[in-house]
Design a protein around this nucleic acid. Structure first.
Lengths: 170, 170
DNA sequence: CAAGATATGTCAACATGACTGTCCCAATTT
DNA sequence: AAATTGGGACAGTCATGTTGACATATCTTG
């Protein structure tokens, strides 16, 4: 598995700050791509065994993270159409992993919850992600983790940051 | 776009190191998901205009990064089947963005290159990613960038790290 | 040199998870 | 009462992955 290496596309005769910057940008793009791929790959085995895909995992994850989440809020988190989410939620409900309840303050809302089996499945999937992330944290150290978060927050458009931050707060 | 916030799944009565750790793990998972999504979203507009998808972008990116890359090495980088890659490469070649040459040391190999229009398209796509990444780097600072890389490297299985590192070296 | 392994390509069928567009109902807001 | 919002459903399409089987050219090895 050797990849032949070539010079980057634009190769200045002498190293310049601009060259260094492009190399650092490319390093970030590539590590983000491979790191993300590596993180989700572990869960795929479990999902395949259960007959689900990554879309089901994402729904399970956010419902576990915020029990009682409304369908609309889940749609905004996932940034997909309600038709796409509808199929996923129907399948999860058909398998008895997710239930709905009617919103107390707004009876139009359907609030999503995991059943016991749904919680068990999500916990198994989370354990997979956790193992990889905890190992990476431990290897990199706490100050690296802070930097890791800071760059990722910087990648998220300002108007979307509140959405992500809201998950971590009470 | 307000997301109702609930307590995390397992909520200890008092904050414990274990609770803090789970919260930090979840923060990493979520930021990685949203950060990755944010990075690729910018390029989607250009891709849609050209009639291509993310699979085409990934192929263009790695061919631009390592001109003369062989089909097999690209397959190992993308970790997909040759049938999937074959369709993408055929489309890129049909649009005149990619050409092949025969390997000098091994005539079975097909080495991939971008044409002038392929380079122009890849450059436009790269500029999109670069804008977001450079802004995030600037916002977070250089030491954060180092930590960002360190955690992502830690996520990648040890046996795959050489593949990624090989892209940056000569 | 013959045999096997490797690099690549192709045909066919299929699964997942997105999309658009349209229509519907119930509940809330104005 | 009318308009908006939250949610659901039906139909069709597209992008991108998968398996499996097979073909061809080239390289490597006994």
């Amino acid at each position: 598995m050797t990849v032949p290496i070539s010079r980057p596309r634009s190769t200045p005769a002498i190293a310049s700050p601009l060259f260094l910057r492009e190399d650092e940008i490319r390093r970030g793009i590539e590590l983000l791509y491979f790191g993300y791929s590596a993180m989700v790959r572990g869960a795929d085995t479990i999902l395949a065994r259960e007959g689900f895909g990554r879309a089901h995992h994402r729904a399970l994850y956010f419902i576990a993270r915020s029990p009682g989440l409304s369908v609309g809020d889940l749609l905004r988190l996932l940034a997909i159409t309600k038709q796409s989410l509808g199929r996923v939620l129907n399948e999860l409900q058909a398998h008895g992993h997710v239930t709905q309840s009617i919103g107390a303050s707004d009876r139009r809302q359907r609030l999503l919850h995991l059943t016991a089996t749904g919680q068990a499945l999500e916990a198994a999937l989370f354990a997979e992600l956790e193992a990889g992330m905890a190992a990476a944290y431990g290897e990199a150290g706490q100050s690296a983790v802070t930097g890791f978060w800071a760059v990722l927050v910087g990648l998220i458009p300002a108007e979307d940051r509140a959405l992500v931050a809201g998950l971590s707060q009470g």
